[in-house]
Nucleic acid binder design. Structure first.
Length: 736
RNA sequence: GGGCGCUUAGUUCAGUGGUAGAACGCUCGAUUCACAUUCGAGAGCUCACAGGUUCGAUCCCUGUAGCGCCCACCA
């Protein structure tokens, strides 16, 4: 037996071991020995391919790898399917910044060139990330790796879109949407956040039309608004039916900026407690106004107009005084113009304003032609809305949330769902497969009557042709919200890997991801997954927290408290990093990690190394028949107890305690007691007793390596390879 | 405005209806014998506060306080 170093050097071991695993082929469940029968599947949440992996990724890799390695040892046909996400909007934002740094402008580049450049950027990152995943020990099946822009994945996404469209669950319409004037795209309700902003609340008189004596200064409705600049787009006033203004319902008021006549309508949606209890209706610049307008269309004669353009500037519709100004400037200017009509001085006002979650630019609510998915309506051919499919699934016992409280949060969010805006005006993504008949159909001679059959929108990947005229179809340039495609990930991946995979591995066993994307991702996977496959895509949802530093701070580059998992793994070894991430980490809570903690587990790796070294140095293959003493029997019983405990924790997904128990057992039972007690016996003249001690030690070592393997795969595998009593080529597939 | 959590040793966190645990830190001691990235011993928590249920509560219930997070079209 060769002399081992006194300390364990992960650098010399990890790459070599990983290569050995990959070469063994056992990452691919198809290659596992026949004892592996029942499938166990985890689809990896595909990391965004727009940067390198951070400590949060290391956490998910650790947790999922623990689950997969454990189940693999338990004899499950374990598939961990890796992937990468093109992450449309996120990546485009990152790339835009990169261009800025290089002195180039995103907005001045042709779409095709941008797409190609971002593609290269993404694929480079993807490749780099794959290396990082290997470094972290991820035992995933690389032969089944998928990317969200793979042609076959796109095909599945197109099919889903078509099915939703045929089912009347997808529609294109002019609806209020969240518009980011910086990024020049719409965002879903989840992609905006609210920030407190200081502003002013203006109290403005809208004079009542008094036909007999002209306009009276004594009769008016006072409206409180924070956005006087949108007054030119006002089309009505709404008052609460029980407010003091109710007597004016049915009368007209004068628009204080452009003198147009507008009706006063009654609507209970107006909060009588807020402001003055009267609301100006500006349908194209406020979602509530849009709703009230639609409810009162027959009472309102004017057509809604837009006075703010896509760049956040006032249009000519706003009148010559405001046209061309930015919203903020226009607000001041309009306030100035309206001064005479103030019923009292504007008050300082703090309120929550919707802003872009990426750049914190104020979101401009606009009414735009967009694609939406209906959340709460029944499909044409089915009984349940997308929401109901997911809610009923969550209520059933077929899916378990870990921690359980996340289910409450899930349900609560599901309660108030509005239709999902899935179209984005960005370059990087999957283009929506819709074609528009432009110009409109002018049927050829003899087909005049067929115009009613002509479709103005056709859902198709390839260019359609009109049966009745020679006009061309123009393709939609908008792309899907990334979550629309990644929401299909569990089935889209398994439908497009090897033949039979979907049948064998779907539904999957665990969806392990961060709680921060519960709404973005898990809810969408539930809705779309059940909709397409009639099955809940996963049996367990395990949600981990956000990794924080030792002062409980979020890690961010700007704070300079980022721990790069690969850098610390380089210093202390991947096994130590994995242990630091899993011990003390309970599902759903934010784990705290510091270099001290990692160092502690590096010491543990050294402990494992030296204890193993001791056992191996003292082992001779004597072929003696063991005669177990009482203490041997006790030690073997302790081993069985530890194993039982760890197994129970693993089966409860309590990896924190499983790891801690294994740690404790190895250090304080095996190293401190079993080995210490064996020392005199190993030197004993009684050869049978010495041999028995050796055999017991070796047996306990082997079993403990198994117990530690899911957590610390590298060092345990390295030691295993030196054991004289190993039964398999690799520890990875040993029986638990 | 709605919802979800948290409050346990110096620190970070586990945990249980029956007179409190781990890691790190700290104190004292040991060490040619697998490991100083070590070993042994030890100090340290009235489990936020106030009520209630109970034979018994840190754990269950109610309330209070502080902290955190998520959701939200009060213009």
């Amino acid at each position: 037996m060769k002399e081992l170093d006194k300390t364990y050097d992960p650098k010399q071991v990890e790459d070599k071991i990983y290569q050995m695993w990959e070469k063994s082929g056992y990452f691919n469940p198809d290659n596992l020995p026949p004892r592996h029968k029942k499938p166990f599947t985890i689809i990896m949440p595909p990391p965004n391919a727009n940067g390198s992996l951070h400590i949060g990724h290391a956490l998910f890799v650790t947790l999922e790898d623990i689950m997969i390695r454990y189940q693999r040892m338990q004899g499950r046909k374990s598939l961990w399917l890796p992937g990468a996400d093109h992450a449309g909007f996120e990546t485009q934002v990152v790339y835009t910044k990169k261009l800025e740094k290089e002195g180039r402008s995103f907005w001045e580049m042709p779409r095709e060139q941008l797409y190609e450049e971002i593609k290269k950027f993404t694929l480079d990152n993807k490749k780099y990330m794959e290396g990082q995943l290997r470094k972290l020990g991820a035992s995933c099946d690389w032969s089944r790796e998928k990317f969200t822009l793979d042609e076959d994945i796109k095909k599945v996404v197109y099919e889903t879109f078509k099915k939703l469209h045929d089912d009347n669950l997808v529609y294109r319409a002019e609806r209020p949407v969240n518009w980011c004037i910086k990024h020049q795209t719409t965002l879903s309700d989840l992609e905006i956040k609210h920030e407190e902003r200081r502003g002013k609340l203006y109290y403005i008189k809208y004079l009542i039309e008094a036909p007999t004596q002209g306009w009276s200064d004594s009769e008016y409705v006072v409206v409180a608004t924070t956005r006087p600049e949108t007054i030119p787009a006002d089309i009505a006033l709404a008052v609460h039916p029980k407010s003091k203004w109710a007597k004016y319902v049915g009368k007209n008021v004068l628009n204080p900026l452009n003198s147009k006549l507008m009706p006063v309508v009654a609507d209970a949606k107006v909060d009588p407690e807020f402001g003055t209890g009267a609301l100006k209706i500006t349908p194209f610049h406020d979602p509530l106004d849009f709703e009230i307008f639609n409810a009162h269309k027959n009472e309102i004669s004017g057509e809604p107009i837009s006075v703010i353009n896509q760049y956040g500037k006032l249009t000519e519709n706003a009148g010559k005084d405001l046209a061309g100004l930015k919203v903020k400037e226009a607000r001041e200017k309009s306030a100035e113009l309206l001064q005479e009509k103030f019923s009292k001085e504007p008050g300082d006002y703090k309120h929550q304003v919707a802003v872009c979650y990426k750049c914190s630019t104020t979101i401009e609510p606009r009414v735009m032609m967009q694609w939406f998915v209906k959340m709460t309506e029944k499909p044409r051919t089915g009984k349940k809305s997308l929401r109901d499919l997911a809610v009923e699934a969550a209520k059933s016992k077929k899916i378990k949330f870990i921690p359980a409280r996340q289910k409450k949060i899930f349900m609560h969010w599901m309660k108030n769902l509005r239709d999902w805006n899935i179209s984005r005006q960005i370059v990087w993504g999957i283009q929506i497969p819709a074609w528009y008949h432009e110009p409109k159909c002018i049927p050829r001679a003899g087909h005049e009557g067929d115009i009613i059959k002509c479709k103005e929108i056709i859902i198709s990947v390839t260019e359609p042709k009109c049966e009745f005229c020679d006009a061309k179809f123009v393709q939609e340039t908008d792309v899907f919200d990334t979550w629309f495609s990644s929401g299909q990930w569990p089935f889209a991946t398994l439908m497009t890997t090897k033949k039979g995979d979907f049948k064998k591995y779907y539904p999957t066993d665990v969806m392990e991801t961060g709680w921060d994307i519960l709404f973005f991702w898990v809810t969408r996977m539930m809705m779309l997954g059940i909709y397409r496959t009639s099955k809940i895509p996963f049996k367990n949802v395990y949600l981990h927290g956000l990794v924080r530093d030792k002062d409980r701070q979020k890690m961010s580059k700007s704070k300079g408290n980022v721990i790069n998992p690969l850098e610390v793994a380089d210093v202390y070894g991947t096994d130590a990093v994995r242990m630091a991430l899993v011990i003390g980490t309970t599902a759903g809570n934010d784990p705290i990690i510091s270099e001290d903690k990692i160092r502690g587990y590096r010491n543990f790796a050294t402990k494992i190394w030296n204890a193993s070294r001791f056992v191996l140095m003292n082992y001779r293959d004597t072929k003696a028949k063991p005669e177990f003493t009482a203490s041997d029997r006790k030690n073997l019983k302790d081993l069985a107890t530890a194993k039982k405990k760890i197994t129970a924790y693993m089966d409860k997904s309590d990896f924190n305690h499983a790891a801690e128990t294994a740690y404790h057992y190895f250090w304080h039972t095996i190293a401190d007691k079993v080995i210490e007690q064996s020392k005199p016996r190993l030197k004993s003249e009684n050869l049978t007793d010495a041999a028995t001690a050796q055999i017991v030690l070796l047996k306990i070592l082997l079993e403990s390596l198994k117990l530690l393997h899911p957590f610390m795969p590298f060092i345990t595998e390295e030691v295993y390879q030196m054991l004289p009593n190993k039964k398999q080529k690799v520890l990875m597939i040993e029986e638990w």
